[in-house]
Structure formats: C-alpha cells, structure tokens
Design a protein around this nucleic acid. Structure first.
Length: 201
DNA sequence: CGGGGGATTACCT
DNA sequence: GGTAATCCCCCGA
C-alpha cells in the first residue's frame, strides 16, 4: 500500500504492549484498507480493550478455540469475527503471542475513499454516520472474515501512526464498554474528546 | 448434531 | 423503545 504522506509504519512492539495502553494510544492514528489500488479509511476515534482471561466479556476468556484462534497471535494482526448473523467486527490483536488480548475498533473519522464508503453503506450521505460503530465501520471499509489475520504492518490493511499525535498526544475520554453484559462496568472504552465521529457519548 | 447466545444495525411504531 | 435480520461457533448430549 502506498503510504499516506508523513505517516509512520508502527514497529511490532507498538502492538505487543498492554492492551489498555494500545487501545488508548491508537486513538488519533490511522486505519486504512486498500481495495483495487485505492486507499479507504481514516482516523481511529473510538476503541475498546478486551483483556483475555481476566475479562469474561472477551472471546478469549475461555481459552483458544477455532473461532478466536487469531486473537492469540502476536500483536499487530487483525482479528475479524461475525456477530448477530449480520455484522463483522474488526479487532487489533495486542500483547505477545498466546495472550489473547485485542482492541475493538468501534469508529473512524473517514478521510479517504469517502465516496466508496457511501456506496458500501448503501447511499448514506452523512459523513458522521458512515463508520461510527463497529458494524458500520466494517461495512463502509468492506472488511469481512477474509481479512482475518491480516498483518497491519505489511498487508492490504494497515495501521499508520500520525507523527503529530505521537509528538503532542490527543485528549482521550475513558468510559465503559458498549453492548456487553459481562464486566460491563469496567472503564475500557476510549474515544477522541470532542469527535463528531464516535458511535455515542 | 441441535440449541442458544452474541463486542450490531436499521426500521418500525 | 422494541425487534427482526440471519450466521458462526461453542456447548451439551
């Protein structure tokens, strides 16, 4: 994939740290997928951390299974799963190999391939409603189970770091996760303060 | 091998 | 605010 101007390719170590740290630090950086030579994606504005064995809400909490196998990879790959018979969700695997932790990407601010996203979202015009939710985001970017396991430093789907965000940081709000029943009270959801592109306050 | 639940969304009233 | 859509996978038998 052609690198966006000024963007930085993360080192594997960026992803292989503590999940909460990675979930927070991903806010403000970029997520792109390449389709037919065209970049689609934007700025990550909302994430949630899932903590493996300490976290009953996490797919990996009951150990490695065929469904969640990718989640136990070393940090830096995508874990994509299908939910409610209707939607895909994109996760970024974190920590060392075998740990089973990941960050759910819940929303992005669209920056490139916006018309493609509108088509994928069946004609929705409002840019704030294109990728402001985990299911909407995967529809807009055309992500599904064939993208499971993609290397986010080398493949057609990438995370790029914004040097400005690395240098100055961004204001991140911490709240509770959405749409889960187990461990719902834990403060493991993060979003970019003031962003109009998050799924909800 | 069948049942049930799930990190959601859109559309209905 | 309620619920259908509609699949994949885990679990128990």
């Amino acid at each position: 994939m052609r690198k966006p101007r000024g963007a930085i390719v993360p080192e594997p170590e960026f992803f292989r740290r503590d999940t909460v740290t990675v979930a927070k630090e991903l806010i403000g950086h970029y997520l792109y997928i390449e389709k037919k030579g065209k970049r689609i994606g934007g700025r990550i504005v909302e994430t949630e951390a899932y903590l493996s064995c300490d976290d009953p809400a996490c797919h990996a909490s009951r150990g490695l299974t065929e469904r969640n196998r990718t989640m136990f990879s070393a940090g830096g790959v995508a874990y994509v799963y299908f939910i409610y018979g209707a939607h895909h969700c994109l996760n970024i695997v974190t920590g060392p190999e075998g740990e089973g932790t990941a960050v759910l990407v819940r929303a992005i601010e669209p920056l490139e391939g916006i018309e493609t996203m509108r088509r994928n979202r069946r004609g929705i015009e409002d840019i704030h409603n294109l990728a402001n939710g985990p299911g909407k985001l995967t529809i807009a970017m055309g992500i599904d189970r064939k993208d499971d396991g993609a290397d986010l430093m080398k493949s057609h789907m990438r995370v790029y770091l914004d040097p400005e965000v690395l240098k100055h940081g961004v204001d991140v709000v911490t709240t509770t996760r959405i749409g889960i029943n187990q461990a719902a009270e834990k403060p493991l959801r993060f979003y970019l303060k003031g962003s109009k592109f998050i799924s909800r306050k």
